[in-house]
Amino acid sequence: MRWLSNNFRMLLVANWNDEYTVFQPDSGKTHFFNQTSMDMLSFLSQRPASTEEICDYLSRQSGQAPDKNFQDNIEKILYHFDALGLIKKES
């Protein structure tokens, strides 16, 4: 299964020294992201990707080797993003 961002260009993003406030106009919600979350979302705004590809990308960004725990956390955030309407499954 692959994920892609949903209406990424609609989001209003403010960078606060590598922490981000993200206003989502279609839900009226405001989110707070750290750098890793923003990396995930902007990565998915460029192309659809699987959980494994996202983990690989984030590992390269942070210089950390991915482990099962890391992948589980990424997957949880992906489902959370999906529930918020920030990403969707590729049809």
Binding site: D18, E19, S27, G28, K29, T30, H31, F32, F33, N34, Q35, T36, S37, M40, L58, Q61, S62, Q64, F70, N73, I74, I77, H80, F81, L84
Partner: peptide
């Protein structure tokens, strides 16, 4: 935690009445 010491993603959402206060 917010800075992601372990490079873990963090997402927090404001669920208050902000949407209605626009």
């Amino acid at each position: 935690l917010l800075k992601g010491g372990a490079a873990l993603p963090v997402v927090m959402t404001l669920y208050s009445g902000a949407a209605l206060a626009r």
